[in-house]
Structures are given as C-alpha cells and as structure tokens.
Amino acid sequence: MNWTPAALSQDIPSGSAAPGQLGDKDIVIWRSASGRIAAWSDRCPHRGMRLSHGFVRGEFLSCIYHGWRYGDGGQCHRIPAHPELTPPDAIKVPVFAVTESDGVVWVAQKDAEPEAPPPGLAGFSPLRTLRLSARPETVAAAFGGTGLDLRGELGGCAVVVLIQPLPDDQCNLHALAANGADTATLDRVSAALEALRRQAETAEEIAA
C-alpha cells in the first residue's frame, strides 16, 4: 500500500481537529498546540462518538460527548466523570500512520506503513481540497491524465492534483500550484478546479 493524501496541512492548524478518511475508514486528523499531527480512528471507544467533533487542548484531543481526553498514541489520559481515575492502558483509540511533506498530510494503516516516502512535490504549494461525486478515473479523464497523481496545467499554471478515492464513488482532490504563482493566477486555478469538478460530475451522471 502507498501513502494516501488525506488533507492539506494548511487546513489543520495547531489546536484543531478535522474529519478525514482512509479508504472506507473514518479518521480524525488533528494537530496539537505544539504542532504535532496525528491521524486516529474517528471514534471514541467509550460511546462511539466521532472524535473529529472534539476539541484540542494542548497536546490532547478530547471527545465532545463526555470529555474523555486522549494523548500520544491514542492513549486515554483522563475521564472527567472520574477525575481521580487513571484510565487503564486498554482505553486507547486505534491510530494510523501519518506523515507530512510539502504541505500535504498523508496517512496509511499502522501495520502497513509504506516503506517509500510519499511522492515529492517540490516546486508546488498547497492550494485547496475539493470533494466531488465522481470516480477517480472519471476525474483523471476529465483532467486529461491517468492514475491518482495528476500533473499538468490548469488556469495557466503548473499544478499537481492528488486524487484521494473515497467510498460511494466520491473522491477528494488535493490541489497544489506552482510555487510563486500570484493571487490572480491562483484564483484562476481555483476556478479551473471548480470547472474540472463540474465536468467530472457531469460525465459521471451521463455514465450512470
């Protein structure tokens, strides 16, 4: 298995959590106050609440439902209903492998961490992530490429478009644009991505 692009680093600032996905698994991607990124199962072991609805205080992520507080490695550190209790080691959120490079957050299964690093994206800066209702091959065809790592030009600018396949014939596009592109150019790339999405979704609807 390879690393899967799951988010852009700029979309998960320190002290925040966001929902993400790895294949059909729901994950929470969160960054501690000191800037450490983590990807965990998006489910509190207590009552199954999505941890991506939770809150980050310092180096810990807490569940919004009962405030159970989790730290490094997914370990539960505090149960507010029992402030005196040291939670047993067994109370743990399953964790995923995560790495950040060139402004992209990549995730993988913990027990199948890829040996090769994620593809190099030197020369490009993260632009934005878009969700669309089309299969990856439909998107690649609309872009005029193949595979999940599309490189070419959009809106008059060199771009990399990373496709993250999602369940139910959906995918995320994580788009990067050439370093140094000015704001007006980036606006054109963003508009071209919207156009690409419309084109792919229309093609998908016709195919269906």
Partner: peptide
C-alpha cells in the same frame, strides 16, 4: 455515534 445501532456486545464500547 458509530455505529448507529446500539452495541449490546460488551466489547464494542467501554
């Protein structure tokens, strides 16, 4: 909440 159904298997939730 995940799963949407209430788990009666004691191992599912703590």
């Amino acid at each position: 909440q995940i799963p949407a159904l209430l788990p009666l298997d004691p191992g599912m939730e703590i």
